[in-house]
Amino acid sequence: MPTVLLLSGSTRVGSTNTALLRTAAALRPEGTRLYDGLKALPAFDPDDDVDPLPPAVATLRAALAAADALLICTPEYAGALPGAFKNLLDWTVGGAEMPGMRVGWINAAGVAAPTGGQGAHGELATVLGYVQARIVETACRRVPLQRSQVGDDGLIADPEVRREVRAALDALT
């Protein structure tokens, strides 16, 4: 079974984006891996993008190299990608892991979000195009979530949300 690396653009402990990806991992535990090193990445510096790589960057690139596809779920901050997640993407530019990588994303912005996360996803499409990732349109979905939909176990039980998550994973694999 192809491996899908799950990347959350949020560093929040109670993030609905991360909860959605934890739900994806629970739905397909044998074919997914949740990356949890976002906070550990150093600020991108082209001078540091040489061997030996900073350990957190080497871990990120190894996780990417081991994956067949990526599923991203990121919030939008101030109309753009969160800085920490853009930093993660910057670290992918100098690596050889992204060209041709199948990528999808789920937009979990709540229904009251002013733009529904369009700014972040526009930037995401730009960066992914730059690193020559292959965006799988059928794996890109809008699934608005509210914090109240996240259970005490950190997962989302709503059957419609789970159906959308499964459909995105199926499209990637």
Rank of each mutant, 00 (worst) to 15 (best):
L70N: 12
A58L: 13
Y77D: 05
K86G: 02
I156R: 01
I106Y: 03
T138N: 15
A113D: 13
T126C: 12
D170Q: 12
A112L: 13
T18M: 13
V4T: 10
E30G: 07
G129S: 09
T115W: 05
E160T: 10
G104T: 03
D153P: 01
S8H: 02
P46A: 03
A67I: 01
R12F: 14
V50H: 12
R163N: 08
P54G: 06
L21I: 06
R162M: 06
T92L: 00
L81D: 00
R61H: 13
I72K: 13
G104A: 09
P144F: 09
E30F: 07
A167E: 10
I156D: 04
A109H: 04
V93Y: 08
E123T: 03
K86F: 00
I106E: 06
T3E: 15
A125G: 02
L172D: 09
D45I: 00
A19D: 10
G151D: 12
A84C: 03
R61Q: 07
A133K: 11
V103Q: 08
L169A: 00
D36M: 04
L145Y: 04
T173W: 13
R61W: 06
A84D: 06
L145D: 05
G154F: 03
L81Q: 02
V4A: 06
E123N: 01
A80I: 06
R163D: 08
A84N: 04
T11K: 10
T74H: 03
A157C: 11
A108F: 01
E97S: 07
R12T: 08
V13G: 13
H121R: 02
G83K: 02
V150C: 05
P75H: 08
V57D: 04
D36W: 03
V50P: 04
M1L: 13
P29R: 03
G95H: 05
C140R: 14
G154A: 10
L145N: 02
W105H: 13
E97N: 04
A67D: 11
A168S: 09
P159C: 04
L145M: 09
P52M: 08
A133C: 10
P29Q: 10
P54V: 00
W105S: 14
R102Q: 10
V4F: 06
T32K: 03
R102S: 05
G79W: 11
L145K: 00
A26P: 09
A56M: 07
V50F: 08
P55M: 07
G129L: 01
T16C: 14
G119Q: 00
L38H: 00
L124E: 04
V136C: 15
E123S: 02
A63G: 09
S15P: 10
R163A: 14
A26R: 12
L88S: 01
L20M: 12
L89A: 03
Q146L: 15
R12Q: 15
V143W: 11
V93S: 07
R147G: 13
